[in-house]
Amino acid sequence: MIGRDITIGQYLASDTLLHHVDPRLKVLAVIASTVLVFVYSGWALLAFAGLLVLLLVVARLPLLKVLKSLPTVWVIAFITFMLQAFLTPGEVIWHWGFLSITDTGLSNGLLFSGRILLLVVVLAALTMTTPPLKLADALESLLKPLSYLKVPVWRVTTVVSITLMFIPNILEESRKITRAQMARGADFESANLLRRVRDIIPVLVPLFVRVFRDADELAVAMDARAYAGGEKRTRLYPLKIGWKDSLGTVVFLAAALSLTLL
């Protein structure tokens, strides 16, 4: 039924180990993990996946639930797997008519689809454990050197954080509007694909109207409360890296990098 999913990008208010880690270290760890997901293959990638899963199990994050609620990711991973399996040249291990699966294709298919799933898991772990405002603070802090090159870092990070904050809202709104249109005759469950595409317009128009209105109201509200970014802005809770955070991140990165030996 509509409206019963968890969405990617959504923050989960909880008290896990990862929630307490400084967001800058988490962002750096995510960047490092993203690079490693693309660098590693074979046993090293499998071991890295194991390391990530172990970390997330220790942090008690409901990742399976998140992965289950993202059918699009599974479809992309499945299509990637099929394309690799059937189209990569190599030694044929299964053959039916003009279709054949090669050994290289099979291993490439598993590798690339595995990488997609791992990337989603890594990003979801970051957004699930970091409130959008802290994430924006972390990005602003990490991108600070760019401000010497006259890049308006705080503006960029404000836009990023507001976008992240609004994604779950927009998804929730779209579900609500979908139900509102179903109540007046739209059929989103019709077998007729053309009709389903046509019926998206009654959802998109009210959604855009709402998003633009919300954006406008937010801008006015920020102005009314004298919001000013940049150097003048101070924080009630400035980011602080504790020794436990540093130690944990170093141990994780050291373990991840040691997998190059495999």
Binding site: K176, A183, R184, D187, V203, L204, P206, V209, R210
Partner: peptide, 21 residues
């Protein structure tokens, strides 16, 4: 459920959610 939707009409609290044309 689909058959029920043809018998029961619902006006949402926010009219903007239902208007688009």
């Amino acid at each position: 459920l689909r058959a029920l939707r043809k018998k029961v009409g619902l006006l949402f609290q926010s009219a903007e959610d239902q208007l688009f044309a």
